[in-house]
Design a protein around this nucleic acid. Structure first.
Length: 671
DNA sequence: AATTATAACATTTTT
DNA sequence: TGTTATAATT
């Protein structure tokens, strides 16, 4: 509390009215939230179970939990809710099961399950509509809290009409499977709270303080959820920064910050403008860039950390030269500044840009860590086993059934499954239940019937045993019984690959054990049901941290870099059509790209290096590239061209031409 | 049923 | 240029 600046302290101690904290990059917003929670518990003596803190990522939630735990005396935080929006929604649904209309053990389908489901729905139609577009459209409707019937009523174009019909069938399928998707974890609680005053009252009484981080990333449904949970309660704290809104394309609505001003009476607004992260030169550059965007709120970051080094801008002839230059700079700077590898981060716009860097870093023996890529829970072997667990908890989960029915081979072919599907549909039950039922023999033939019922009986047996066993044991035995190791050996390109996949399986078993033993909050050991729901939400727990100790250069996309900071940052590929990305240019979304650049610049603590390539091979074709228009928006007095390449007239002319071309494209597509 | 040929495609991605 | 999904073939 002593080390807080006046604005921060003000934010912490304002507890009698709703509060909006506009927290610039690096202004210590996480500290404000954790200090405020500590203040609420210690000084105001609010019981922890009446405080809910919401973040967007599991990682952020984990960090916050740890910081609070370190800040408070032992057990003072017991009962405190710190979770993501989605985990909160999940817990809400599970504790209000009756009102939710779901049955116990309901499944949470991840996006790839949903995609699969949509494919099935549309394929039978013969309508070759783009699954990805449908997925996006449905998600948009859900985030706008529109039920399928309403969507159908509103839809005008034939394409929309079709999408709305698909939406309706998709919802029917989810209901039949006793399943929800990610968006439902927000939408359903909102629907419930809006419709049932008693329920609403109960929750509003229960939650006395709600704190929301990264508020600019909330979508319509999340905004509504916050409102319904808070009601007229003064205990609301939201923290955000409209300049760091980079998820608008996913439905985030940064204007939710401004909207609060109109919707919440007596709202107090506090700005955090002192930056504790970067040098003033870095901030000057970032401030100037973002000044080109319209603003919901004006703010100006400053820092007490001194002037710092000029920002270096390096022109490279092509992508290879850029890679080589980066690696040589890394080695030079590490030596000269006595830095460690982990002091460096390489930031880029899109994932594929990491390739070349990876290759060269590997060759040079420089350790690196790559963000993104395939996550643990997306690996096929983990998804297989997770599907088994889901089916144990929820026998109506047809997607899970279909995933595991022939893993390992059970000789149940597509035609048998087709018949089973029809039978299940006629009886109005799930595939697994239909498989165990009688009366299939006529339509199916005796062999198919026997195989199906053997599987169903086996599943039922495992399910019975799972009731009084630790989740870890259940999974371990399952892996044994289906002889998953042999299956992996048969279905992997090499024994080595099979070994790696089996390692992942063992790690998964360990993970299940760790998760179920970790008593979160005031609960005891977790049940299989708890564990299964955590898998879908990719609640990775302490997996991540093990890696972060190692000394490695970080390769990150600009999106994943948000919220992080590094002493030395390289921002690569600073080019037209790459940083203001081509698609964004076509969609006239330059502002979000500028915010993306802003996020990149403000990750740097001490030094910042921007590189761009004059030539790049794209999809096998070599094209000329121009420096990003954002480069022209940076104050030249803080920039340095180490290769004695100040903005030569030729380049500037080219840039100007590019802008003209962009303008023309905008005019063409817009009006 | 499994393997191979072909064509289409190609941002960002917290949950 | 690489990947990925579908089609075509064995």
């Amino acid at each position: 509390m002593l080390q807080l600046n006046p604005q921060q302290r003000n934010a912490v101690t304002t507890t009698d009215r709703p509060l909006l904290v506009l927290a610039g990059a690096g202004s210590g917003k996480t500290r404000v939230i954790t200090e405020k929670i500590a203040h609420l518990i210690e000084v105001r003596e609010i019981p922890p179970r009446a405080i809910v803190a919401i973040t967007f990522t599991n990682k952020a939630a984990r960090e916050m939990r740890e910081r609070i735990r370190g800040r408070l005396e032992r057990n003072r935080a017991r009962g405190l809710w710190v979770s993501t929006f989605h985990t909160f929604g999940l817990n809400f649904l599970r504790s209000e099961l009756q009102a939710s209309g779901l049955r116990g053990g309901f499944s949470v389908l991840d996006p790839s399950d949903c995609r699969q489901l949509l494919r099935e729905i549309t394929h039978r139609d013969g309508d070759p509509a783009d699954t990805e577009t449908l997925l996006g459209q449905i998600s948009q409707w859900k985030n706008g809290l529109l039920a399928p019937e309403r969507a159908r009523a509103i839809a005008t174009e034939p394409g929309e009409q079709h999408a709305a019909r698909v939406y309706q069938r998709y919802e029917q399928a989810l209901a039949a499977y006793n399943a929800v998707d990610f968006d439902d974890l927000i939408k359903r609680p909102v629907d419930m709270l809006s419709c049932e005053p008693q329920l609403r009252e109960r929750w509003q009484n229960r939650i006395r303080h709600l704190l929301v981080d990264e508020y600019q990333d909330t979508n319509g449904a999340q905004y509504r959820l916050v409102q319904l949970l808070v009601g007229l309660n003064p205990g609301l704290t939201v923290v955000g920064d409209d300049d760091q809104s980079i998820y608008a394309w996913r439905g985030a609505r940064p204007e939710n910050l401004a909207r609060l001003r109109e919707d919440v009476p007596r709202l107090e607004i506090i700005k955090l403008e002192q930056n504790y992260r970067s040098t003033n030169r870095i901030l000057a550059v970032a401030n100037r860039l973002i000044a080109n965007n319209p603003h919901l709120f004006e703010k100006r970051l400053w820092s007490a950390l001194g002037e710092g080094e000029p920002i270096r801008v390096i022109r490279c002839t092509d992508a290879e030269a850029e890679t080589a230059r980066l690696v040589s700079e890394l080695m030079r700077m590490r030596f000269r500044l006595r830095a460690t590898w982990s002091d460096f981060a390489v930031l880029y716009r899109s994932n594929h840009q990491s390739r070349m860097f990876e290759k060269l870093l590997r060759e040079q023996g420089i350790p690196y860590r790559l963000s993104g890529g395939q996550s643990f829970f997306e690996r096929p072997e983990i998804r297989d086993l997770a599907a088994y667990l889901r089916l144990l908890v929820n026998p109506d989960d047809n997607p899970a059934f279909l995933r595991v029915i022939n893993v390992p081979r059970r000789e149940i072919g597509p035609s048998t499954l087709e018949k089973l599907g029809r039978h299940a549909h006629a009886r109005g039950c799930s595939l697994l239940r239909a498989a165990s039922g009688i009366g299939l023999a006529e339509t199916l033939g005796a062999r198919g019937q026997a195989r199906l019922s053997r599987f169903a009986d086996w599943a039922e047996e495992i399910r019975r045993q799972a009731a009084d066993e630790a989740p870890e044991r259940v999974l371990a035995r399952l892996v044994e019984e289906i002889d998953y190791e042999s299956w992996l050996l048969d279905n992997s390109p090499s024994p080595r690959a099979a070994g790696r996949r089996m390692d992942a399986v063992r790690e998964f078993i360990d993970w299940v054990g760790r998760v179920s033993r970790t008593a979160t909050g005031d609960s005891q050991a977790l049940t299989l049901e708890d564990v299964v729901s955590r898998i879908s939400l990719m609640d990775v727990l302490d997996r991540q941290r093990e890696n972060s100790d190692e000394d490695a250069v970080q390769l990150l996309t600009l999106h994943t870099a948000k919220g992080l900071e590094f002493p030395h940052v390289f921002l690569v590929g600073f080019e037209e059509e790459l940083l203001p990305h081509r698609v964004s240019l076509e969609e006239e979304n330059v502002e979000e790209e500028r915010r993306l650049a802003y996020v990149g610049l403000t990750r740097a603590q001490k030094t910042l290096t921007i590189t761009w390539a004059a030539q790049r091979t794209r999809y096998g074709e070599t094209t000329e590239c121009l420096p990003s228009r954002f480069l022209d928006e940076l104050p030249p007095e803080h920039l340095e061209w180490p290769d004695a390449k100040p903005p030569d007239p030729e380049t500037q002319q080219l840039t100007a031409r590019a802008h003209l071309a962009g303008l023309k494209a905008m005019l063409k597509s817009g009006t």
